Computed example of a mutant assay.
Amino acid sequence: MRPDARRTTLATIAQAAGVSVATVSKVVNERSDVAPQTRARVLELLHQHGYIAPVFRHAEVATNPTIEVQFDGDLKTYSAEALAGIMDAATDLGASVVVSKASRTTHWARDLVAAGRRALIAVTSVYTTAHLNALDRAGLPLVVLDPLHLPHSRVNSVGATNFAGGLAATQHLLALGHRRIGYVGGPAIAVCNQARMHGFRAAMEAASAPVPAAYVRSGEFTYQAGLHGGAALLDLEEPPTAVFTGNDEIALGLIETARTRGLRIPEDLSVVGFDDTLLARMASPPLTTVRQPIREMGSVALRTALRLANGEKVESYHIELATELVTRESTAPCR
């Protein structure tokens, strides 16, 4: 979000109320020498315009600035690693972090500023134009980590090279001789899921390997989605010999479904995940996956948020860090 976005001034409120700037200032500073009717009219206009007092809006970044980090939904392994990266950077830069669950009440943006927050980092969240306008009025910079939707031009975001990761994962399976390869991903509308799926499709097309419609499944980035998506693929008359999944949790759910059907990983079915969280290393067998530099992404998000809070301009609204294929024991040559 641009830190120089236009915001409401005392003069704006004074003109709308038909009073002097000095009168509005008295109301803002809770002076008693203002008529009750005038005070009520000014307060109503301050509320309508989402006015934030200059003490919060223009203060220099404190020695120990506080950044709000909000998560949507339940915290997962991905969330923990992202938060670890944010905390590492905050420790290095002398900043404080407050973690909360996203709750966008009527005055949520103003309340964050009033509580002393200097910027907001939203992890895998969706922000509408109304949300962005509220943050603009409050003067609160926003950085979205791993956005679910295509980044708005007004939003600073940090992500990873999801298309390249999907391409590398599928090329790995193709190099092992697999041609019947499925994809079980997250929400169809999620931009990261779309990029991973497009990378998968690009690799398959380049290898002239067909992708039946039934081989591509969308759901959530959850273990349960892996259970259900895996069952749908393995129930096919001609099931895939390998599956690329949208994240590590989905991969583990799919592996469990295969196990309950007597299939061995990787002898009977090769599986590739995405993220390279702790789950990938703890899986049995250890999971081949695409490493998304989640901690580094969290660190970059924190540093970007502090720069915006200090009124600095950043070189790019959207930053993508490189992904990398990590080969372990869940993939093997097609028999």
Rank of each mutant, 00 (worst) to 15 (best):
R6W: 07
R6N: 09
A11W: 09
T12C: 01
I13K: 13
Q15V: 12
G18P: 07
G18T: 08
G18D: 09
V21Q: 04
S25I: 03
S32F: 01
A59W: 08
A59N: 10
T63I: 06
P65S: 06
T66Q: 14
V69P: 00
Q70S: 14
D74A: 14
Y78H: 08
S79C: 02
A80T: 10
L83F: 08
L83Q: 03
A84M: 14
D88L: 14
T91Q: 14
L93I: 13
L93K: 11
G94Q: 11
S96P: 08
S103L: 11
S103R: 15
W108V: 09
R110S: 15
D111R: 12
L112G: 03
V113I: 12
A114G: 06
R118C: 02
I121P: 08
I121L: 10
A122K: 12
S125G: 15
V126Q: 05
T129R: 13
H131F: 06
A134N: 11
L135H: 04
G139F: 00
P141A: 11
P147E: 00
L150E: 15
V155A: 07
V155P: 03
G159T: 04
A160S: 12
G166P: 09
A175M: 06
L176M: 04
G185S: 05
P187I: 09
I189T: 14
N193I: 05
N193G: 06
G199H: 02
A203I: 04
A206N: 12
P212S: 01
P212R: 02
P212G: 01
A214Y: 08
Y215L: 02
Y215T: 01
G219K: 00
Q224K: 13
A225S: 15
L227R: 07
T241F: 04
F244C: 01
E256I: 07
T260F: 06
I265R: 04
G273N: 02
P285A: 04
T289F: 03
R291F: 09
V300E: 00
A301D: 04
A309T: 02
V314N: 07
E315A: 15
E324M: 01
L325N: 11
T327I: 15
A332M: 08
P333T: 06
C334L: 07
